[in-house]
Amino acid sequence: MSNKIKYFVKTLWLLFLLLISNIQLNACKKEISISEIKKETVTRQDYAEITVEKIKLKEDTKEIVYELKSQEIKNIFLILDLGKETADLKIDNKKIKTDLNFTYDILQEDAIKDIKTLVNKSGNIIFLLPVVTEEYLTFQILKYDKLKMQFSDSYFHFETFDNIHQLYSNSKSTLSEKSNNYILKIDSYQFTGNFTHKNQYSLSKKNDTEFNGLFSICTPDKRSDTIKSETCYEILIKSNMASIAGNTSVCSGKYSITNVNENEIQLITENNPNCQFKIKKSANKFYIQIKNSEYWQELIKDK
Rank of each mutant, 00 (worst) to 15 (best):
S33M: 10
S33A: 11
S33E: 11
I34E: 12
S35T: 13
E36T: 09
E36S: 09
E36W: 04
I37G: 04
I37F: 02
K38W: 11
K38V: 12
K38E: 15
K39L: 09
K39S: 10
K39I: 08
K39H: 07
K39R: 10
E40V: 10
E40G: 09
E40M: 13
T41V: 12
V42I: 15
V42A: 12
V42L: 15
V42R: 13
T43P: 07
T43Q: 12
T43S: 12
R44N: 14
R44E: 11
Q45P: 06
Q45I: 13
D46M: 10
D46L: 12
D46I: 15
Y47S: 00
A48F: 15
A48T: 15
A48V: 15
E49P: 00
E49Q: 00
I50Y: 00
I50H: 02
T51R: 07
T51Q: 13
T51K: 07
V52T: 01
E53T: 00
E53K: 01
E53H: 03
K54N: 02
K54R: 00
K54Q: 00
I55F: 11
I55A: 13
I55R: 13
I55K: 15
I55L: 11
K56W: 14
K56C: 14
K56D: 14
L57R: 07
L57S: 06
K58P: 04
E59S: 09
D60Q: 10
T61V: 07
T61K: 10
T61G: 07
T61Q: 11
K62A: 12
K62I: 14
E63C: 15
I64A: 12
V65T: 06
V65L: 06
V65I: 10
Y66L: 06
Y66M: 06
Y66Q: 03
E67A: 02
E67Q: 10
E67P: 02
E67L: 08
L68W: 07
L68F: 15
L68C: 13
K69P: 02
S70K: 01
S70G: 03
S70D: 06
S70I: 03
S70M: 04
Q71G: 12
Q71Y: 14
Q71H: 14
Q71F: 13
E72G: 08
E72K: 07
I73M: 05
N75C: 06
I76T: 11
I76R: 08
F77I: 12
F77E: 14
F77Y: 15
F77N: 11
L78P: 02
L78F: 04
L78Y: 03
I79Q: 04
I79G: 04
L80T: 01
D81H: 06
L82A: 08
L82C: 06
L82N: 04
L82S: 03
L82P: 00
K84W: 04
E85S: 10
E85A: 11
T86Q: 12
T86G: 11
A87Q: 02
A87R: 03
D88F: 03
D88E: 08
L89W: 01
L89D: 00
L89F: 00
K90G: 00
I91G: 03
D92N: 09
D92K: 05
N93P: 05
N93Y: 02
N93A: 05
K94A: 05
K94D: 06
